[in-house]
Design a protein around this nucleic acid. Sequence first.
DNA 1: TTGTATGCGTTATCAA
DNA 2: TTGATAACGCATACAA
Lengths: 349, 349
Amino acid sequence: MMNQRIRQQDIAKKLGVSINTVSLALKDSGRINEDTKLKVQEVAKALNYIPNSIARSLVQKKTYVIGFILPSITNPIQIETAQNIESKLLANGYNMMLMTSDHDKNYETKALDILLSRQVDGIFLFPTDIQDQRKNQEKIKSIRDANYPIILLSGGNFILPSDSVYMNQYLGAYKATEHLINMGNKDIALIYGGTRNTEKHRGYIAALKESNLEYNPNQVATVQNSSYEQGYRAASQIIKNGSVTGILASGDYLALGALRWCREQGLRVPEDVAIIGFDDLEASRFAEIPLTTITYKVEELTTQATDLLFSLISNQEKLTWIEPRRFEIEPTLVIRESCGFKKRSERLL
Amino acid sequence: MMNQRIRQQDIAKKLGVSINTVSLALKDSGRINEDTKLKVQEVAKALNYIPNSIARSLVQKKTYVIGFILPSITNPIQIETAQNIESKLLANGYNMMLMTSDHDKNYETKALDILLSRQVDGIFLFPTDIQDQRKNQEKIKSIRDANYPIILLSGGNFILPSDSVYMNQYLGAYKATEHLINMGNKDIALIYGGTRNTEKHRGYIAALKESNLEYNPNQVATVQNSSYEQGYRAASQIIKNGSVTGILASGDYLALGALRWCREQGLRVPEDVAIIGFDDLEASRFAEIPLTTITYKVEELTTQATDLLFSLISNQEKLTWIEPRRFEIEPTLVIRESCGFKKRSERLL
DNA sequence: TTGTATGCGTTATCAA
DNA sequence: TTGATAACGCATACAA
């Protein structure tokens, strides 16, 4: 029910000029009389005219809307990424349409179709799952082949159907595991999201292998989402399973949940169990035992991603002929207290 | 650069029928031959036809897009609210356009204009600030008077220009303060967002007054956002100011930051300082001292809000003649350990 | 059951 | 500097 809104026609009629004149005047076009321009703008303001961008989009074939698909809210990093990108888009005159894909399993495809139908000028996609990504691979490829800018916010040691910007999670997991090993741990557990985190899994295994440590499936727990509760629960299972002295969790909330369980059991951290997380959330800095973790460089990632998107948008050449580019961002280790190496000074205000 | 996409015209030409036939067939209209309908749908699928909803919106005067304006990301409750509403909208065939208003101070107005220009079918607005809300009051009123559904997700003891659904924060703060008093605290500090939280401020004062306790401005700290860091910092200031034994924070992260500061100073919680937060985030359940807090009933709020929105959308009567409705949701106290009353059993899995 | 014609509000092209 | 006219892709009223 858009109620009768003011159109260019209305203000044209009021002034006895043509619609075209109004259109040009509102555009602040140079090739129009200053007086009439002012008159038009004045009346427009008086009538509270608001341009209909739907109509404009139809003729210009451009909506200035960018779609953003992300799995869900449990990972605050993804939300932060979305909002960070939103503000960058805004600075360039674009708005964001946000869709979450986790509602049902195959919703990612549907979300893509909706965004295409809405004629968005580009898409950022946080794939739900490497599995699903493979499944949508053809679709994504065809979207890109139609010169439609689509950027993936994930990646790894495999071929992607489109351009991508991502934190190198393999490397992150490798560094984290290596750190646990260096701190003297030999039985290191992994708490992670299964098919959502295959790269982290790979990095974990690679680091173990590098140190000639055995990969023990009993020390790996799969988790539904990256909440405290799941980390708490996973820790309870894993530690009962054996002599684990180190835990790598694929997210900080998982790590903090695990930390809580350990503390409740009277286990000391890091003396009895060392814990390391992922993402460097604020909660980790303020945890009871400040958490050692792996950074997720949101600002760097979103800057790269939006730059890439805008270059694709303004670029005229057929994307088909360009190899998909990938930008990796290298995560770094943030050492706090949960694996040893106390540095109390860090939290000074 | 929308590349040449398939239109109804293209599939009409391919089949030698009229556009109208195609339009009806794709609509699955009853008044069309089954054979041709199937044929059309087949070709549409083969050509990978995706309807142009921009064009459809122009003629139907309906976009099936709802705008959502929220201040920023520091409050995870607002994000959760947005995503919760997004999923409810989706179930009804609507999508959400997300805008954050905190970038510059007066951006809320601009966001409203953008959404109106984009012809969204309705708007949810989380006002940045009561102050700003007053400022935009006329604008919001005029939007509503134009029969444009706009719903505010805040409220209080004052007149609102449009329909609203909100947690009664006055009551929440009252209950929280009362609880602190009941636990024997007489010097109770408030950490809150200033003009963003006037209702909480009022509730705090009312509860003090009810117990004949003096309101002491030195025990009130204003904070930039609801992060751990701000809570940590505020606690350091406030506790140095005097003999505070209880802290009410307007958000759980603030409370947890304050908790951390106290612990680092060797203060026991709740024995030396009792702390209570707001929102009942997951982090509070898993804190080193599980946090007593006030619930924010996201699901209840979003259900009310979307129901109200859809009733406005389908309603044909002039909104001008209807008094703005308001739905208050009553917050409840969740007692954990940070104010006393230990209940260790709660966290069983 | 299908086709034709018109319009949605705007921009763009071409004359005047 | 302005005005008429034709698009944009789709839906709808009406005709056939």
